[in-house]
């Protein structure tokens, strides 16, 4: 499971960085989204990978060691919400730039 997760994060970040360095705004925003997924998975993995370990405490008296760490899961939720909001905001700017310059180049003009 560790290997699959690590490879998944690696592929997402790699594709994200490559897209981020492309000159079209649409590629940039897709790249940002991919990186944000990878970062969310990474935060999640910092709570250690456990199977069948609920993060919410059950009835009193049970063994704490059988629970997963709830903090990274809460952090991921927050990060997803904030990442989603800022990406949406970037989308608006992308459209404004497209409307003003008639091109989707990140510099607002095609290279000569």
């Amino acid at each position: 499971m560790e290997l699959v997760l690590a490879l998944g994060i690696g592929v997402l970040v790699g594709s994200g960085v490559w897209l981020l360095l492309r000159p079209r705004t649409y590629q940039v925003i897709i790249g940002l989204s991919l990186i944000s997924y990878a970062v969310n998975l990474f935060i999640f993995s910092m709570g250690r990978l456990r199977v069948d370990a609920p993060p919410v405490l059950g009835p009193a008296g049970s063994d704490l060691a059988s629970y997963g760490d709830p903090v990274p899961q809460a952090l991921v939720l927050t990060a997803i919400v904030i990442g989603f909001a800022t990406t949406a905001l970037f989308l608006v700017v992308l459209l404004a730039s497209r409307g003003l310059t008639d091109t989707d180049h990140v510099d607002g003009q095609e290279r000569q």
């Binding site: 981020l20 990186i35 935060i43 952090l75 904030i82 800022t86 970037f90 700017v93 992308l94 310059t101």
Partner: peptide
Amino acid sequence: VKAGMHYIVINLVASFFLLIGVA
């Protein structure tokens, strides 16, 4: 809009770094 777009992308990427570091 042009300067703002660059500003936003760079700060979004910096925020990802912040999250990775915190994690």
